Simulated assay, not measured.
Amino acid sequence: MVTADELGQLLQRVGRHDRQAFAEVYQATSAKLYGIVLRILSRRDIAEEVLQEVFVKIWERAADYDSSKASPISWMAAIARNRALDEVRRKLPVAIEDYPEIQDYASEDETALAATMRNEDGRRLAECLQHLDPERRQMVLLAYCDGFSRDELATRFAQPVNTIKTWLRRSLAQLKGCLGS
């Protein structure tokens, strides 16, 4: 397992177009980023394509990574999440998989969240999530695991979008503080 510091150093090397470092970044993060993308898109074929685009963007923007603003995995996860959400907004329904209401079967695949929660970092995150107000916890999970937009959250929680943004920012800061301790 690669530490955050090692991953940050690898990203710096990727920023200098070091292919070996890029391969190591891919090896260390592809499963986690794929889980994020798949959770939002719910289709493996599209998620695989989007994941390729995510890594192209990571290759192109690695030199822009700033460790003072985010951890390496958070920076890459934001790229993956944003690209997946772009795909959701852009895509027109063209396949049966795009109509979940007609698919009346449960997947036996483990969700990305469940897989993450099995490791030590996931257990720490679960503990920290329990310290959030239940409504805020649900909001964070809906936003970052299910891909809900701020507008969708505002509607669901009957709050203005700016309030949702503030609550999410504060909740993430609280989680960061908890995880850092």
Rank of each mutant, 00 (worst) to 15 (best):
D66Y: 01
A126M: 10
G122M: 12
K91I: 05
E53G: 02
V56N: 11
S74Q: 12
D5E: 13
Q9F: 05
Q103E: 07
T111E: 10
A126I: 05
C145A: 04
D98C: 07
M139Q: 08
R123F: 05
T116W: 07
D64N: 07
R124C: 12
S67I: 07
L38F: 08
R137T: 02
D64E: 10
Y99H: 12
E127A: 14
A63E: 13
E127Q: 14
R137V: 07
M117T: 10
E60F: 07
Q27F: 13
A77S: 14
V14A: 11
Q12W: 05
Y65P: 01
Y65D: 13
A126G: 09
Y105N: 10
R124A: 15
E101R: 04
D5Q: 09
S107E: 09
V54M: 04
R61E: 13
L92A: 15
L10W: 06
L33T: 02
V37P: 02
L92I: 05
E127D: 11
D45L: 08
D66V: 04
E49Q: 07
T111R: 02
I46W: 03
A80H: 04
A115T: 06
S107W: 02
G122V: 09
D133I: 05
S107K: 07
R136E: 06
D133V: 09
P72H: 07
D104A: 12
H131V: 14
A70Q: 02
R16T: 15
L142P: 03
R124F: 10
E110P: 01
K57Q: 09
Y34W: 12
L125F: 11
I36M: 06
F22Q: 09
